[in-house]
Design a protein around this nucleic acid. Structure first.
Length: 488
RNA sequence: GGCGAGUUGGCGGAGUGGUGACGCAGCGGAUUGCAAAUCCGUGUACACGAGUUCGAUUCUCGUACUCGCCUCCA
């Protein structure tokens, strides 16, 4: 059996992965708070852990791996959104969950086996909170229940912090009902319009961290194999989850391996709402980036390194995938055809960049079957379209007419006319590949967009090059230019 | 202030204690009416300083710089 090594945040080292039960490998990943479209940073853990899920399924068998990813559907951001829009919380969260699954599906992410919603596990959260109080790890005060961080002596061990250091950082909310400023909320009171449930401490709602502890116990039991999420969750979210669960169920309980993906940047800068370079997966898809291209860009950087999203990388990814897709077209590989070199890279702490290099080797060697089977382990080159339909040239009829004119000029050696037409094509971003089997065309989006802007169209670039013109506008512009070309 | 990560050729990006991936770009060639596409070939890079070593880009320590988390945000 393939030996998988994973970097464990808890031990700060790469270790051989030994599942608790090889017939029931369990992975829990923190999912989104559902109040808005997923931004491109949300997509990184989804793609990273989807790839790990695929690898685990390959190694342990599809029926022996269980993956849970929660939806946080009770949160003040959702309450705010509800108050602003006048819509019900359930409406907002239902819609957002639908968007999330659509957008992540477009990136080739498999749906997890479990997608628990926090609001459906309130009872379990209350139960765990009661257990923590009974065990002396939490206390009720002023309608709140707080976790007493001093009661758990390993508090801070996951993220490498000490309580004293953190208090010195002075970034904690001081509240009169807290015994220690670092104590965090397990339960808090709700008033009027806020969502809430009856509890031993009155009408209220859970704090953020308790949901993962309660839901993972319900779905997976007291212990499970892998807990993943973005590095920014390491503290406080994961530290607090671990404190709750281990205080409640023992130090050996809860996650055995903690994995954190590094953050994502955009064109070399931190992506944040305050910097305004913040955009959603849907915006990227709508601009014509196939989901598969986005996925490829993410996988070309190791998950524990900061990843920079750039247009240049996307263009490179597209060129590579286009080449590979042409090579594997019509190939039906057996599921066991995945190549050892690719598997070995993935098994080495998910070295996806190395795996992609191995795929390049396969492509160069012309091993279409190996390429396709191996690529599918990374969620690439699947049979679904991967979002390429957005790139299909929808003005095909006009195009074919113009091509006939171009061809006629060439056949008659009227090269100056033929070349003028071709130059026009090139200007429009239409890349012509004229082979012995006939001419084929594709639209170079970036080139087309440049020409579009050069042609006097108003630039709509507001927040950098990516938040630009929708692909559909380029599309119709190219079509109208082709009509002009045909007329002239 | 606390914690952590990184620094590899023009760009992106793996990896290794000892003849230096891979991709893109560039360059040369094949092909082409000319191109595009494709194919073939081509590149002695590992922040700086010291230490360990027969030998370090790879290990240790230090310096510089970059970045992230601790706040909305994964």
């Amino acid at each position: 059996m393939t030996e998988i090594k994973l970097y464990n945040t808890k031990t700060r080292s790469k270790q051989v992965f030994k599942p608790i039960d090889a017939d029931n490998v369990r992975m829990y990943v923190c999912g989104p708070t559902v109040y808005d479209r997923a931004h491109i940073g949300n997509a990184r853990p989804v793609i990273v852990f989807d790839t790990l899920y695929r690898l685990l399924r390959h190694v342990y068998g599809v029926d022996h791996v269980k993956y849970a990813r929660n939806f946080t559907d009770v949160d003040d951001k959702i309450n705010t959104r509800s108050a602003e829009s006048g819509r019900s919380i359930r409406d907002i969260t239902d819609e957002t969950i639908g968007w999330f699954l659509d957008d992540m599906g477009a990136l080739g992410a498999l749906e997890p086996d479990f997608a628990p919603r926090a609001t459906e596990y309130i009872d379990q959260m209350i139960t765990m909170t009661e257990e923590l109080i009974a065990g002396g790890f939490a206390y009720a005060a002023d309608g709140h229940v707080l976790f007493d961080v001093t009661s758990y002596d390993r508090y801070g061990s996951l993220s490498g912090r000490s309580i004293d250091d953190m208090i010195a950082g002075a970034r904690v909310e001081v509240a009169p009902y807290k015994r220690n400023p670092m104590d965090f909320v397990l339960w808090k009171p709700s008033s009027g319009a806020q969502p809430g449930w009856e509890s031993p401490w009155g009408f209220g709602r859970p704090g953020w961290h308790i949901e993962c502890s309660a839901m993972s116990r319900e779905l997976f039991g007291e212990t499970f194999d892998i807990h993943g999420g973005g590095l920014d969750l390491a503290f406080p979210h994961h530290e607090n989850e671990k404190a709750q669960s281990c205080a409640c169920m023992g130090e050996d309980s809860f996650a055995q391996v903690w994995m954190h993906n590094e953050m994502l940047q955009v064109e070399g800068k931190k992506m944040s709402k305050s910097l305004g370079n913040f955009f959603s997966v849907r915006e990227l898809l709508d601009q014509g980036y196939p989901g598969e291209v986005i996925r490829f860009v993410y996988l070309s950087t190791h998950y524990r390194k900061p990843m920079d999203w750039t247009e240049k990388k996307a263009a490179g990814a597209e060129a590579t995938l286009r080449k590979w897709r042409a090579l594997v077209e019509g190939i039906e590989p057996s599921t066991s055809a995945a190549v050892p070199a690719v598997i070995a890279c993935l098994a080495d702490d998910l070295n996806t960049a190395g795996a992609i290099a191995a795929l390049h080797d396969l492509a160069k060697a012309g091993d279409a079957e190996g390429l396709k089977a191996s690529a599918e382990l990374l969620g690439l080159l699947g049979d679904d379209l991967g979002g390429w339909e957005n790139k299909a040239v929808r003005f095909e009829e006009v195009l074919l007419d113009v091509v006939e004119i171009w061809r006629a000029h060439r056949t008659n050696k009227r090269y100056e006319f033929a070349d003028a037409i071709r130059d026009r094509f090139t200007f429009l971003g239409l890349v012509i590949s004229d082979s012995s089997e006939g001419a084929t065309f594709r639209l170079d989006y970036k080139k087309a967009m440049e020409s579009f802007l050069m042609s006097g169209n108003v630039a709509k670039l507001q927040n950098g090059p990516l938040i630009g013109v929708p692909f559909s506008e380029i599309d119709s512009w190219v079509a109208s230019e082709l009509v002009k070309l045909e007329d002239s």
